[in-house]
C-alpha cells in the first residue's frame, strides 16, 4: 500500500510516495536521491545512516519513512552554506578524520546534533554522542580530534 509522505528536508518541503514498510533511509536514498546518507548494517548498529529528525539524531535505516510525515529532517547535504562548509565538516577534513569517508556523514550529523545541544561538550558527552557510530578505518583518534576542533571553533 503506497502512502504519500510530506516532510521537510534541509528546510525544503517535499512530498513523495512510499510503501508502508519503506524505511526512511530507503526513502531518502532511493526515492529522493539524497545519497549522502549511507547504508551499511541496516539494523541500527553502525550510525552510517544518521540523520537529524526533529532536532535529534536517529538511525534512518530503522525508522519508517511514514514517520517522516510532518517532520523536519536534516541530512548531510543540508549542512554546508553554499560553498562554505559547516565547522564540523571542515574539522573532519582538517584533522585527517576522513579516510574512506563512508562513516563520515553519519558522524558529522551526530556531532552537529551534539553541538546544537551543547557548545562545550565534555569528553564523556563526545563519546556518548558518537557511541552509536562505527568507523572501521581510523581507530577513532582523529575523529575525536575533529570533534574537539569543531567544538573549539564554534
Amino acid at each position: 500500500m503506497s502512502i504519500t509522505i510530506t516532510t521537510t528536508i534541509n528546510g525544503k518541503a517535499v512530498s513523495a510516495g512510499a510503501e508502508a514498510s519503506t524505511s526512511l533511509l530507503e526513502f531518502l536514498r532511493d526515492t529522493l536521491e539524497y545519497k549522502g546518507t549511507k547504508l551499511c548494517c541496516n539494523t541500527g548498529e553502525c550510525g552510517a545512516c544518521t540523520v537529524i529528525y526533529n532536532g535529534k539524531p536517529i538511525n534512518s535505516c530503522v525508522t519508517l519513512a511514514a514517520d517522516a510525515n510532518g517532520a523536519e529532517i536534516t541530512t548531510i547535504e543540508g549542512l554546508a552554506d553554499g560553498d562554505k562548509l559547516h565547522p564540523v565538516q571542515q574539522a573532519f577534513i582538517d584533522t585527517g578524520a576522513v579516510q574512506c569517508g563512508y562513516c563520515t556523514p553519519g558522524y558529522i550529523i551526530s556531532v552537529k546534533a551534539l553541538l546544537d545541544r551543547t557548545k562545550k561538550p565534555t569528553a564523556e558527552e563526545i563519546e556518548e554522542a558518537v557511541s552509536g557510530n562505527i568507523c572501521r578505518c581510523t581507530g577513532y583518534n582523529k575523529i575525536v580530534d575533529a570533534i574537539q576542533l569543531a567544538a573549539q571553533r564554534l
Binding site: 549511507k38 548531510i76 549542512l79 562548509l85 573532519f92 576522513v98 569517508g101 556523514p105
Partner: peptide
Amino acid sequence: SPARKGGVERVIGKGIYGID
C-alpha cells in the same frame, strides 16, 4: 600533511561510492 584530496565531497555527502 595537507587536507586529503576528495575530502570535501565526502563531508558534504557527494562522494559517489559504489553503492550510490
